[in-house]
């Protein structure tokens, strides 16, 4: 897959982040951007015809293990930060009764 397609995934996330009117959809947009970054890194570390980065099963060319190790970090941190954001969403819903950005602002949120 071309790395340019992963840019499109990131840009879809950015578009969603700037147009969504719902907090949960904003959180999902961040997750989509994160998936784009993960795909980009794995794409750049890949080699044409390379095998998995395990010594006993490797051929002469392997995929670069460094981006893969970095992306484990990204996945773990991304999932926990998403969980934290969604928990804040639940608290906002309990307080204001809605998760729409504009209604929360109209009810005096953010002051």
């Amino acid at each position: 897959m071309d790395p340019l397609l992963t840019f499109i995934v990131i840009l879809v996330g950015m578009y969603g982040l700037s147009t969504s009117k719902n907090i949960i959809k904003s959180v999902f947009s961040v997750t989509i951007m994160e998936s784009g970054v993960i795909l980009l890194f794995l794409n750049l570390g890949n080699t044409e015809g390379g095998s998995i980065p395990i010594v006993s099963r490797a051929s002469e060319v392997i995929a670069d293990p460094l981006p893969q190790a970095l992306m484990i970090t990204t996945i773990v941190i991304g999932s926990t930060v998403t969980a934290l954001a969604l928990m804040l969403c639940i608290k906002v819903f309990h307080h204001y009764g809605t998760v729409e950005w504009r209604e929360i602002l109209a009810r005096g949120g953010g002051k």
Partner: peptide
């Protein structure tokens, strides 16, 4: 890109004892 993979393939197992190179980095 593609500068570090050959180093990990050559020395990764001897230096860390891990056959899985991702684990050896982590």
């Amino acid at each position: 890109q593609k500068t570090s993979a050959s180093y990990f393939l050559e020395y990764g197992l001897d230096e860390t004892g891990s056959s899985n190179l991702v684990t050896s980095i982590l």
